[in-house]
Amino acid sequence: MIFADAFAWLLDPVNWSGGKSIPVRVGIHLLYCLGAVLGASLIAVPLGLYVGHTGRGGVVLVGGSNALRALPTLGLVTFLYLIAGGGTVGVLIGLIVLAVPPILAGAYAGIQDVDRGVVDAARGMGMTGSQRLWRVEVPNALPLLVGGLRNATLQVVATASVAAYVGIETLGRPLLDGLRVLDYGQFVGGAILIAVLAVVLDVVLAGVGRLVVPAGLRLSAAPAGRTRSRRTQRGRREEPVPVESGGSTA
């Protein structure tokens, strides 16, 4: 049983001490992921907010973001390693490139999906452009923005394993080592660690989301029995599915 081997590897005390122990690799993995998501956020959030708010350049943004998604991370990492002469910068940039599209999409769609009526009302009450952005659009965009961050984090955590190929001691190391010597215990053990890390980070970010998303928006996303709810134009939020022959009593 490969899972038994995996747990044997995971529980082996040898793997929990020294410079290449599991905790050290988890730490390095986390550092790269954190750096990548932070770096990507610094680029993508302002850009997404700007384009969403002004409505200018949406097409270019979506196209560019799709092109970024097409960049093969392994290719980018090896390329940057060779021209930069080292792994750190190459891996970081590769992961940032990976994280930008989902964050960008979240920020942009978040602002875009804010009910036009709400924005109109804000304008009608005399809010300036920046007041509208910060007091109305951004709070309303938070659910999708956080969603984008969660997507990016998932992808980065999973892909940071590729960094091991250029010599960075991430959790990809046991994967590659296990693969080379066909030690499935080590291989699957590494994969489990990465998956657990991803789930933990996702739960943390979901918690952060709950804290920062205004209560009014959380309430609207709660299931509301048999009510027919209007969907936003894109139907992106999770809302109760309209019942077909249920309770319309006019």
């Binding site: 999973a158 394993s161 994967l175 291989f187 699957v188 590494g190 994969a191 990465i194 991803a198």
Partner: peptide
């Protein structure tokens, strides 16, 4: 999505 692609390929 939390499973690294590399792991899935090989497992």
């Amino acid at each position: 999505y939390t499973i690294p692609s590399l792991a899935l390929f090989a497992i």
